[in-house]
């Protein structure tokens, strides 16, 4: 399982006053089981890129290969593409529409032709992956749930299609800290337990540092940088010139380094930082 993106180009409103080059020669590869974080400020082309990966937008030129199949080819069947590549939009809870949670989650699998007698199993499995209790809420209305639960129902609706690639556009936007953590943990579970490729866009650098194997930095429709979180976040000045930051724990570590010469840490997450501090200062 792999994704190959070759020389994607896409222009919005060609020939119109609002003409913008949204993607400018974008190429990258994603390998089996990887989690990729995409960062870039609003308008850098992230969302346009995501929509190319499951055929919602066709490029002006360039190709997208998923699992050895060229999905930008005119002969590619879009239903197959969408079964292979699951895309969760920003605020996905706004797309819920069925009377019950179970029916809503079953919408995707039904569209891809899953037999009725297989459905309950599918829905149960998807709900368990996103951490929802089937027996408790499968028959409730999705509109009566809390914000965090709604978001997970919406994600389950895509997971239930058993895609090989799961793409999420700002999966934690607008959630409170507790729901935010739950969704992050859920993404980790999906990646680990189903060995799915996960590609997500986020403005939250702490999330990007925690989840990603590799980070792609987008700027003005191009991939400006890519590498492990450690590599990417070491270019603090370059990132800031693109209007991007680094995980906030870096600021705290900087202050500690200034106060205590000799202390070193290139931690990116609070857990790593806490570990480094404990070790150096001999704390429990």
């Amino acid at each position: 399982m792999s994704i190959e993106v070759k020389n994607l180009k896409y222009t919005y409103n060609p020939g119109m006053p609002g003409e913008t080059l949204a993607l400018d020669d974008v190429s990258f590869e994603v390998h089996d089981g990887e989690t990729i974080g995409i960062i870039g400020h609003t308008g850098s082309g992230k969302s346009t890129l995501l929509q190319h990966l499951n055929g919602l937008i066709r490029p002006d030129s360039g190709e997208v290969w998923v699992d050895g199949q060229c999905i930008t080819d005119k002969s590619a069947k879009l239903v197959d593409v969408r079964r292979k590549v699951g895309l969760v939009f920003q605020y996905p809870e706004y797309q819920l529409f069925e009377e019950t949670v179970a029916k809503d989650i079953a919408f995707g699998p039904k569209n891809t032709g899953i037999a009725e007698d297989q459905m309950e199993k599918r829905v149960r499995a998807a709900m368990s992956i996103v951490g929802l209790d089937y027996d408790e809420i499968a028959e409730s209305s999705p509109f009566e749930l809390s914000g965090g639960q709604k978001r997970r129902v919406a994600i389950a609706g895509v997971v239930a299609m058993r895609p090989s690639v799961l793409i999420l556009d700002e999966p934690t936007a607008g959630l409170d800290p507790a729901a935010h953590d739950e969704v992050l943990a859920m993404i980790e579970t999906i990646n680990a337990s189903m060995n799915m490729i996960v590609i997500f866009v986020s403005h939250n650098m702490a999330d990007v540092a925690r989840l990603s194997d590799r980070v792609l930095v987008m700027d003005k429709g191009k991939i400006a940088m890519q590498g492990t979180p450690r590599e990417v976040f070491s270019h603090e000045d370059e990132l800031s010139s693109m209007g991007l930051g680094v995980p906030p724990v870096r600021d705290i570590l900087k202050k500690i380094k200034e106060a205590v010469p000799g202390f070193e840490s290139d931690a990116l997450t609070t857990d790593e930082a806490a570990e480094d501090i404990r070790k150096y200062f001999g704390l429990k």
């Binding site: 919602l56 699951g86 895309l87 706004y94 797309q95 891809t112 299609m161």
Partner: peptide, 16 residues
């Protein structure tokens, strides 16, 4: 804009 987003989201769930 909202309609556009919802259509795309349901298409991503295989709606035709």
């Amino acid at each position: 804009e909202e309609t556009d987003k919802i259509i795309k989201a349901q298409q991503a769930r295989g709606a035709d």
